[in-house]
Write a protein that binds this DNA or RNA. Structure first.
Lengths: 112, 112
DNA sequence: ATATTACGGTCTATATATAAATCATTTATC
DNA sequence: GATAAATGATTTATATATAGACCGTAATAT
């Protein structure tokens, strides 16, 4: 017992997670797949799939994305090839950016 | 020790996770935020943020989405209002679909 | 060049997500 | 209506993700 972390997330994040879960659930039913079927294909337990569809924020990222892939919910609205290309582009951008972010160390913080 | 689960995910899922991490990293740098800054705002540890940017599939879904939101990486390329609307639509579709998926219980499985 | 800070990695303790089994309920098919 | 399956929910044991501290290194600004 004794809750320590108690992380709380923004409304947008929670809504996004909720939507992803609902999309997965809808896609699964449209494809007429049972929860057990999808869980097996994803290599996870049925209980975890239920939590994912329910929009539980504490699920594993990999499990969630895998389930989404299985039922046909595209992340980033992109195919695999496009995805790979997108990764390359982001990597290129990354190399151009400074490797380390340096904060203004001046007298006063000009944050707002 | 003694690995038990050893879940493995599809190439697409792993690429999507990798891309998301890279997008987060790029967005963070473009906004000139340090890892510590983002981690604090997200209420997570710096180490977890590093794993998220690295594309680790075993990160918490909520933490990942929260970080993405903070650095401005839009999930579903949609704003909050659009997101909420999208949720409604999905819910509507959900109510129309049969509540339970029923498998053909015929003589032979016609799986392929 | 030097100082300072961001970053990457490692280690440990703890909280907790997960798998698996079980039961009750709902739902589809007969 | 009867039957069987799918779903929802709960419980327990175990694996593991996470926080927090630390260190060394790399990178930026002076």
């Amino acid at each position: 017992m004794s809750k320590v972390s108690a992380r709380t997330y923004s409304r947008y994040s929670l809504e996004a997670i909720s939507l992803l879960g609902k999309l997965i659930r809808a896609a699964r039913k449209e494809r007429k797949m049972t929860t057990q079927e999808v869980a097996d294909r994803a290599g996870i337990s049925r209980g975890l799939l239920q939590r994912i569809e329910k929009g539980n924020s504490k699920c594993e990222l990999g499990a969630t994305f895998e389930v989404a892939t299985i039922v046909g919910v595209k992340l980033f609205d992109a195919e695999v090839t496009t995805l790979t290309k997108h990764i390359r582009q982001t990597e290129d951008k990354l190399t151009l950016l400074p490797k380390s972010v340096r904060k203004k160390v001046k007298i006063a913080d000009d944050d707002f």
